[in-house]
Design a protein around this nucleic acid. Structure first.
Lengths: 182, 182
DNA sequence: TAATTATGTCAAAAATACCGAACATGCCGA
DNA sequence: TCGGCATGTTCGGTATTTTTGACATAATTA
């Protein structure tokens, strides 16, 4: 892994000069210069300081996988979604023909007052989602969260969870669960 | 983050002594000792060497696996998304702190004229997505599809694919890719 | 054009990390 | 109890990083 090059790319992406970043990070500009030229291998503490000026965590820095940029049916219209609704919780699964799918990608609609119930919704894997309309209440473990349009979640599915919409408007969510042992 | 303590825990977990680890890593035992006592902040290069003796990557080391999923954040607002954008293709990853995530859940925005490029975008796994605003052109294999708001896709990531927005309006997509090796 | 400001780089001094070799402790078997 | 033997710690010296304070270049302004 090319630490110097990576730092340089990130810094440029943020539109910072070596000196600006140095000031924010509390190090000197020459430190940045040398790190970027790989003429030194920074100490963890100083790299951390530098990244705080971005700001960026060490994990993010080292997970450079983000540099991406980055005969089944492929496209499904609303009419093609597979309906898995129960009561006021409407679930539309994308890719109904996909047999051994690795994940469940769904459009979920929670009508006012709807609830996935108290039952521990337990399964292996992880799930994530984004609110595209309305708001709802998410319980994970014993924490209760309130999510509104534009908010997202990501948690380990082994933790008991529950979706509830105590509000006046329907709430629409796009979600993904993996594996699709649903 | 307590680098020394973390190293110590990992080393013990692997049943290694400071000297054993030192030998495998190609450093001296005193180095390990000092790192674990936080009497120094190791350079990236030496920490990397040490971890190779485990073996463990820097990402894994800093992603603090010790944290149970219960301590992970669950909800992410737009400000918390991790930005993986390149040029006119804007990628926002949900769950940046999730170390070994099983999937990448993202909000993608394709500006007019943007394109993920001709390069075969090849990786294992599967991916799905839903258009929440605008429209775009999806190429999978040698098929070209046109998706508009409300349409979705689901395909095997081993098939070469490409995202392109030749239209006048930005296109926004919610997507999920698994595994997150992208 | 000249002065100004911003950029990145470099050399030597200061600070810090690392090595090599000792030291201290505890454990186990003779 | 003693002598290995393995453990982790400490210390002086060496190697590396970081700062300090320059220099060179390019872009901007007077």
């Amino acid at each position: 892994m090319d630490v110097g090059e990576r730092l340089k790319v990130i810094r440029k992406q943020k539109g910072l000069s070596q000196r600006e970043l140095a000031k924010r990070a509390g190090v000197t500009n020459s430190t940045i210069s040398m790190i970027e030229k790989n003429s030194v291998s920074p100490s963890v503490s100083s790299l951390k300081k530098v990244l705080q000026g971005i700001p960026m965590s060490l994990v993010e820095f080292f997970s450079d996988e983000g540099e991406t940029s980055a005969t089944q049916p492929v496209v499904y219209g609303p009419a093609d979604f597979m309906d898995l609704s129960v009561d006021d919780v409407k679930l539309k699964l994308v890719g109904k023909a996909f047999g051994r799918r690795a994940m469940a990608f769904m459009i979920e609609t929670y009508e006012p007052g709807s609830d996935t119930g108290e039952d521990p919704y337990l399964h292996d894997g992880e799930e994530a989602g984004l609110v595209i309309r309305g708001q709802f209440e998410l319980t994970v473990g014993d924490e209760i969260y309130h999510l509104k349009e534009g908010d997202a979640y990501y948690f380990d599915s082994t933790r008991p969870h529950r979706f509830r919409n105590p509000y006046d408007e329907p709430c629409q969510i796009v979600s993904a669960t993996t594996p699709a042992n649903f």
